[in-house]
Structures are given as structure tokens and as C-alpha cells.
Design a protein around this nucleic acid. Sequence first.
DNA 1: CGTGCAGTTGACGACACTCAACCCTGGTGG
DNA 2: CCACCAGGGTTGAGTGTCGTCAACTGCACG
Lengths: 232, 232
Amino acid sequence: MSVNKNALSSALIELLSFPIFKEFSLEKLEILCANSEIFICKHRQVIFEYGEPAFKFGIVLGGAFKLSRPTITGEDSIMHFSSPGDIIGAFIMAQPQPKYPVTTAAMGPSRLLAVPKENYIQSWKKDSDLIFKIQNLISSRMSQFQAQKAMQKSPIPARIAELLLQLSNRSSSHEYKLDIPLTRKEIADSLGVTIESVIRVMSEWSKSGLIDTTEQMITINKPEKLIEFLKS
Amino acid sequence: MSVNKNALSSALIELLSFPIFKEFSLEKLEILCANSEIFICKHRQVIFEYGEPAFKFGIVLGGAFKLSRPTITGEDSIMHFSSPGDIIGAFIMAQPQPKYPVTTAAMGPSRLLAVPKENYIQSWKKDSDLIFKIQNLISSRMSQFQAQKAMQKSPIPARIAELLLQLSNRSSSHEYKLDIPLTRKEIADSLGVTIESVIRVMSEWSKSGLIDTTEQMITINKPEKLIEFLKS
DNA sequence: CGTGCAGTTGACGACACTCAACCCTGGTGG
DNA sequence: CCACCAGGGTTGAGTGTCGTCAACTGCACG
């Protein structure tokens, strides 16, 4: 893992472009992110490991990360996809001896700002507006979770449609293009189904022009059609 | 819904027995819970409705509540079971115009302390230790969520076992007796399976003495046996 | 040129859903 | 006092969606 301590100040400027840090002064960010490191990550590189003691949390600067958990059978269950501006593992910092609840791995080349736990307990905690913003991040993550849980009984096409639409809503671009590179396996692991099932559905959609996928980047051409699949 | 404003002070004393308010002074609780109301609820009574604007959050005093969401097909998907000491809807108070993300309904006769949103934004927010404790509550709820999601591919017996063990761990009593009255339908709605599937598994377990269920109260007699079911 | 990863397709079978009937209990009203 | 109904629990037969297994393609990489 490449670590670059010097580029910190330029990273802080990047932070200003994320909604959560809007209207923050650079001085304040310097305090909040004191002693932080920038991780330059390669595809599939693991940053935090499930179950390990957590001394840092992360702010996604670029690229994307998947947060997953191993299942009893050794497979992976993906809990969340994080894109730039997202905060990883912040709210477990409130625990006395936190352990990472998920494994964090880069999807494609990505960059992460790793902030020490102490900062959260000392400076972040004091700023109740910042805490509120983090709670809002968690709320929306939870709400995505619940939307997916509510579709457990729906057939697979509905659940894939739900996932794709969720990810496209979050996307910074106004277009229906997902800003995260997704393999079929990752979609399968996220929904708790098999890769074959995902493929059968999505290659059908590709053929009929509903979606386009090149190099793991997915574009939704006909969102209305996808929405129809949601209804059971 | 019965509302009783006078019994507030005795309710505050109850709060002291919950881990989250341990070591709080009564004066402090009076500030935190100013203008709060006690709801005495009957079985199946709905307190908060999914999607409605949220002006209050709740602290469970007695009994139990289920937090659920309607699915597209009009069924219910149960997100969480809340028992005494649990806080309902607090962390969405951080949003500018929060809406309830779940419907809250009483399971059996129950009592709830309803606290105005303003309190959270004014007094609760200031107390960063309290905020941390709430974050810990959410963390553990999230972690239960994730554990269940990780078992989506497991067969139904494993998932029922997981749910029962989760609920018995939380239980205040040291015994393997769940402190929440659960119908088969509620278990089914919580796992996203059909009631028939739940019945087939559980009546088998009842017959072989693995569990006991009388009047919706479930007791786990042989936890080791249940744990075996977890492994796929 | 072999190896690993992503994607694809088909045949087969099982687990879980659907539908339908049924029992038992407690409450309510004629 | 009995009839009726609603809610919870149970069981069986039939069906289908989805998982399993297996084989195969194309591509990038060292």
C-alpha cells in the first residue's frame, strides 16, 4: 500500500468539494485530519480487514471501495459500495475498542484518507454539526439497506433493478451511468444470489438494450423499463 | 392512544436503569426529556407511521415494538425488534425534515416515552457522550442487520436459528428466553420468507424439544443444537 | 503460452413458495 | 348458550424459481 504523507494539504482541498465538508475552513480541516495519511490503493487491495481492531477510519477521495463481510461458508457478502465523499467506519469509532465490522477493498485504483481514531474522539466529536452530517450518511446507508431487505421476497430481476437504480441515484453524474465499476460477481454478492442468476438477467437486459456494460461500467439506457421490474 | 403527562417523573427514574442513561442525574434527564409524553400502547397499536414527518423519537420503557416497512406488494418487512432501553428514530432527527423510515407498532401492551425532535437538536446534541451511546446502539443494530444479510444464501433453518440466537443474546434475562412475544408470521416477515416455511422448521424443533413456545413466548432449550444449524 | 479473471450457457434438481384445507382458542353478539 | 369470527398455528400436494455443476469463450498479463 502506498502511503503519501506530503500530499495531505492538497487532499484537504479536495475534501471541500464534498457535501459533508462544505463551508469548512482549511484550518479546521487541518485539525480534523491531523496525522492522517493518504492511501493510494490498487484494484482489489484490502485496506481494513473484518474483525481487526480499528484505529483509523477513512474518507474516500477517489475511486470506489466495497465493504463486505465473509459468510460462514467463506463467501463474501457485500454490504455497501462507497464512492468519493463517503466516510468509512467513522461511527464505530464511538465504541471503546472498535473492530472493523466489514472488510474494505478497493474497486479499481482508488484513494483514501485514513484518519486516526483519536481525531474522532477529540476533534470530530466536538463538532456536533459534523456528527449530524455523519449520522445522515449512516441514515441513508441504512435506508438503502432496508429498501433491499424489503425486496428479499421479490424475484431476482426486481432486486437487480433496485440495486442498479440505487447506485445510479447516488451517482454524482446526472446521467444514468454508475460511477462504480461493478462485476456480475459483485452484484451477486451484494444481493446474496449466484453469479449465474445475475448473468442470466443482465445479459438479457443488455441484448434488449436496457443497459450497457463495457469494462464493468454500467449505463442504464431505459430507467423506466427497469422501474417496471421493481413491482414484483 | 393513552397519553399521560403526569407520570413523566417516574418514567425518568426508569430511564436510569437502562445502560444508556446510567450515571445521568435526574436533573439532566429532565432537561433531555422536557415536554415528553408517555404513550401507553395496546397490542398492535401503531405509534409512528412509515413515511410520515417525524417530530418525535421514542425511548422504549416497557413491552416491545416492531419496526417494519411495507413492501411493494403490500406485505410487511420487519427491520428490527425493540425492547426496553432501545431508542427509536433518534438518529434520523439529525435530518432537516426527517420522515419515519419505519412503521413502529406495539407487540403486546407496551410503553414508550416520546421525546420532541427539538430536544434532540438542542440538548441531546450538546452531550457528545450521549450521542456516542446512540451511535453505539445504531452500530449494534447495523451489525445485526449485516449478520442477517450475510446469511441470505443459507437455508431457512440457519436463518431462523440466527434470528432466535440474536434475540436471546440481547435479552436482559440471563436465560435463553426471548423477552419479546413473537408469532411465526413476525419471524417470517423479519426474514423475508413465508410463514409456512417458518412453521415447518419450528414445529419440528418444538417436537424434538429444541425450543419451547407457549403464548408466543419462545425459550431456547438447546442452544448448542441451534448453533449447529448456523453452519449452512 | 499458461494462468487467472470475467462472462456465458445448458441440464438437472431441490428448496422454498403457492394454494388450499384444517384445528384450536378466545372474544363477541344474538 | 351457542354461533360466528378472527388470529394463530399446522399440514399436504403441486409448482417453479433459483442454485449447483460443468463446460466453454475471450481477454489481459507476465
